[in-house]
Amino acid sequence: MSVLAIPGWIGRRTLAALAVFGRVALFALGAVSHILRPPYYPREIGLALLNIGWLSLPVVGLTAIFTGGALALQIYAGGARFNAEAVVPQIVAIGMVRELGPVLVGLMIAARVTSSIAAEIATMKVTEQIDALVTLSTHPMKYLVGPRVLAALITVPLLVGVGDVIGIAGGYAVSVQNLGFNAAAYLTNTVNFLELRDIVSSLVKGAAFGMIASVMGCYYGMNSGRGAQGVGRATKGSVEAAAVLILAANFVLTGVFFSV
């Protein structure tokens, strides 16, 4: 193999990655345009809201409460080294609202929702159900993809909001029960310290992560290969892609909201 083969390989890989990126972006645009135009499928949207939003609450709540509690313990222990134990409420609040809330909820949604969307749609593809939909004059983008993306766009920001609150509650519980904080003072400190920008960034991240999680699930499902192996690959690929993209988007959004 000549030395020149290496840049060639890198170039081809880059082009291929860009092509995939373009296809995903077009897919996402298509999904949004189908959400906006009739016909609408209220039953599908309702089911998607239930599956993506409501049924994700337990996992989101549990993740947030443990994380908030652990965060309080860590900040207390770390702060003690330079007599700054008192900052626990403030740091728990911005830690949860700005970063941990959106990221953890996003990753949980990638694990729970992206995988199930990808597996379901890929199975439908493999068993010709997508073809059957088309022959029954129903557009798969509208019937399958649109409702799921819409539901994720609506519910994931709400889930992030719930996660933020529960995470702060976890920190509060640990601080008041175990670390000797005054309950009322803890709450005032939390509320006074948070800015509108923190909350807006949290919800915007939620919407972005919801979009990423649902679009990746649908994209991998609709482009699944054949057979059980195709379904397995689609599911694995969708979760990997969603998780990595969520973390990357988080970095970018944090930069956008907080670098000035």
Partner: peptide
């Protein structure tokens, strides 16, 4: 497509819908 009906080799039934809604799929929407 509204002029066509197709029976797929593998059936291709929608497994999330009961049988009657599969049969009446077209008659319930569009």
């Amino acid at each position: 497509l509204a002029r066509f009906g197709m029976l797929f080799q593998g059936g291709a039934l929608f497994d999330s819908l009961p049988v009657w809604q599969n049969v009446a799929f077209r008659l319930l929407r569009g």
